[in-house]
Amino acid sequence: MDLKLKGRIALVTGSTSGIGAAIAQTLLEEGATVLVNGRDESRTAEAAEKLKAYGDAHAAAGDVSTAEGAQQVVEAARRVGEVDILVNNAGVFTPKPFFEITDDDWETMFKVNVMSGVRMSRLLAPGMKDRGWGRVVFIASESALNIPVEMVHYGMTKTAQLSVARGLAKTLSGTGVTVNSVLPGPTWSEGVEQFVREMAESEGISEQQMKEEFVPRNRPGSLIERFAEPAEVASLVAYVCSERASATTGAALRVDGGIVDTIA
């Protein structure tokens, strides 16, 4: 299926690795020009260079969890052109028992996971509205609905993203700009790999064994009974960013392996 992304310019925050890099690659393969973002300038440039194997990729370094960094990224993007597609993927997670989560932990998680998307949307969505076409996607998580007891502060930010996305979709009603959330389940990214490696070491088993056991043991509601691959998440995101998804807006779309046990 042709997603009709040729000629579109996309910015994917937090796209030097993991799900973000997979989204960037998939959009490039569909013909979009993609701005790759990360906090570190050299790492962002390196990631963009690698992604050039798949299409027209450019680096747009900056820390989108700060107002200054978000503005820096937008300025870099506009040197390439007007952004048609914004994927708010930048995020962090840190397992920590509730009573050990400090005020700084709560604030940092909120700044990175929520305020980055708020700022980037505020900077870029008005231009999409003026041009009569645009796509804004928030990469949330099934943890927005299934709050993980091992990182309540993370779950809180993912729930907040759903509220922001729904509210922004209503704000942009009838403009040709859609706003949606995508909710991945456990996905085999670099951060998750490190987390699983540490769990394996603490239990004295191999990383591969822990990888195979983690989802059935810790997320028993999963219907696929495994980690998803970043490319599987990216496929849904690419569709949501496309011309084909013009009637989908204000939605929370799950690519969670069936973990969320509801039919709506």
Score class of each variant (00 low, 15 high):
residue 16 T to H: 04
residue 181 S to F: 01
residue 121 S to E: 14
residue 95 P to R: 05
residue 58 H to T: 00
residue 119 R to W: 03
residue 4 K to P: 08
residue 98 F to N: 14
residue 227 F to K: 02
residue 239 Y to D: 11
residue 19 I to V: 09
residue 117 G to R: 07
residue 45 A to C: 11
residue 132 G to A: 03
residue 143 S to N: 12
residue 258 G to Y: 00
residue 130 D to N: 11
residue 194 Q to N: 14
residue 69 G to E: 03
residue 91 G to S: 04
residue 252 A to L: 02
residue 216 P to E: 02
residue 92 V to W: 08
residue 90 A to W: 00
residue 219 R to F: 15
residue 129 K to H: 09
residue 240 V to T: 12
residue 98 F to L: 15
residue 8 R to C: 10
residue 33 T to W: 02
residue 157 T to E: 10
residue 149 V to S: 15
residue 225 E to L: 12
residue 189 S to T: 15
residue 242 S to C: 07
residue 260 V to F: 04
residue 241 C to H: 10
residue 225 E to P: 01
residue 245 A to K: 08
residue 236 L to T: 14
residue 199 M to S: 12
residue 110 F to V: 00
residue 215 V to Q: 10
residue 89 N to Q: 05
residue 38 G to C: 06
residue 198 E to R: 12
residue 123 L to Y: 10
residue 247 A to P: 08
residue 261 D to P: 15
residue 60 A to V: 12
residue 169 A to Q: 05
residue 249 T to R: 02
residue 107 E to K: 15
residue 61 A to K: 06
residue 243 E to G: 07
residue 179 V to R: 00
residue 172 L to V: 02
residue 246 S to I: 06
residue 31 G to W: 04
residue 50 K to S: 11
residue 65 S to H: 00
residue 148 P to R: 05
residue 27 L to V: 08
residue 259 I to Q: 13
residue 110 F to Q: 10
residue 8 R to H: 14
residue 247 A to Y: 15
residue 163 S to T: 14
residue 45 A to S: 14
residue 151 M to S: 12
residue 50 K to D: 09
residue 86 L to P: 02
residue 69 G to Y: 00
residue 189 S to G: 10
residue 89 N to M: 01
residue 121 S to G: 15
residue 50 K to Y: 09
residue 20 G to N: 03
residue 65 S to L: 02
residue 217 R to Q: 11
residue 164 V to D: 01
residue 169 A to C: 00
residue 83 V to S: 06
residue 98 F to Y: 14
residue 136 V to F: 05
residue 20 G to M: 01
residue 54 Y to Q: 08
